[in-house]
Design a binder for these strands. Structure first.
Lengths: 210, 210
DNA sequence: CCGCATGTTGTCCCAAATGACAATAGAAAA
DNA sequence: TTTTCTATTGTCATTTGGGACAACATGCGG
């Protein structure tokens, strides 16, 4: 399986035409009559896929679908297909994060190329997500106190510093720290800091320590 | 000063018209008759700025100018201005990284909005760059051996591990490690790891340690 | 030949982190 | 009420990291 393509178009003939073309090219295909329809049958995340969206569909504009999807935690790339698009709409769509923008009639070449790229993009996104999601889950599993310790520790504070900052004994911090390491499933401070950076829990804050 | 705008257009009347409009809006302005001209008089990096590029200029296509600039380490956003653009060209330009795409005649509102956005973007880029550049410089100042130690240390290896990996004494690693910390100008391992992550020196490699 | 940078290694001591066993107290849930 | 979770603190021994002195070898340019 090379990937999954979700076709959204209210024109049945276009849908079936596309479906046939893409299935022949080796893709899994699902069709929807509207953007809402797509949102309802939320595609299984985790498989590299993309959405082929006819901009003519009335219920949800492209950008809106985009933001709706990302709210749901999805990063599926969207390829817009338009009949007679105007420049401003095109610019808006692409700047809003469309992965590509095609005009009808779509040449098979362009279509397949765009889809290949989009699915490749999503593959990368999925890989990233599958790495970061568990980390976020681990952080979510920390208690409030543990999170405080976590934040200070990954900034290079020593147990003593943290103890002073949080108003308790060094020994206490030590205990929390151990639990943090366990829950985050890391063995070393370096790994902990790496995770924090990747999650963005350290956004621009590398100040002095001692 | 709100920012710097570099206008590239071979049409003198357009240049001066734009220049006047933008100066009135409070921007610093420089004009160029060709993309090459812009590249020659490489704009001073560090000031939030943007390029207003007429796609008609013949010497360098937009995307080419873009890549040429980024080769030179610049991240100036480019706003394309086109007369009668076609969709594919628009799509290509924006996907290639254009910050915005305007069509003539450009309304003052659109223009100023686009420029404001672009300069804001560049402001962020500049801030980021001014943080990362010195770090890269520090890394470049490491000796080969020091860099080896650096790479292992930020992955969580202990001095003992590194010593074993590089075939020398723990004491030796200790010495290198100290010099690394000095040269990178950090006090703690956490900071060192943060820098490594931000520079991308740790791309997906958080494996076991002990 | 000499100075300098680089890499190497040493000892002594102290600070910091880890791990092994622990215990106590309050709050929330069963 | 009893269990469970969370936060708190303790000691002791060990490992690691960091700082303060160092020394020695090599290779390169002046």
């Amino acid at each position: 399986m090379q990937g999954f393509v979700h076709i959204v178009d209210d024109d049945a003939s276009f849908r079936t035409a596309m479906e046939r073309r893409l299935k022949r090219a080796g893709y899994e295909v699902a069709t929807y009559t509207s953007a809402q329809h797509l949102l309802d049958h939320l595609p299984s995340e985790g498989v590299p896929s993309c959405v082929l969206l006819d901009v003519r569909v009335p219920d949800l504009s492209g950008p809106k679908l985009q933001s709706r999807l990302s709210e749901l935690g999805s990063t599926v790339p969207i390829i817009f297909v338009a009949d007679h698009p105007d420049i401003p709409a095109t610019v808006r769509a692409i700047k809003a994060g469309a992965d590509d923008f095609l005009t009808k009639p779509v040449s098979s070449d362009d279509l397949l190329q765009a889809i290949k790229r989009a699915i490749a993009h999503h593959g990368v996104q999925c890989a990233l997500k599958s790495k970061l999601d568990p980390v976020r889950a681990h952080i979510a599993a920390l208690t409030a106190r543990e999170r405080q310790v976590f934040e200070l520790v990954v900034r290079g504070k020593t147990n003593k510093d943290v103890a002073h900052a949080l108003g308790c004994t060094e020994r206490t911090i030590k205990a929390h720290r151990q639990r943090v390491m366990e829950k985050m499933q890391v063995q070393t401070l370096a790994e902990l800091v790496s995770l924090a950076e990747r999650i963005g829990a350290l956004a621009s804050a590398t100040e002095q320590t001692a």
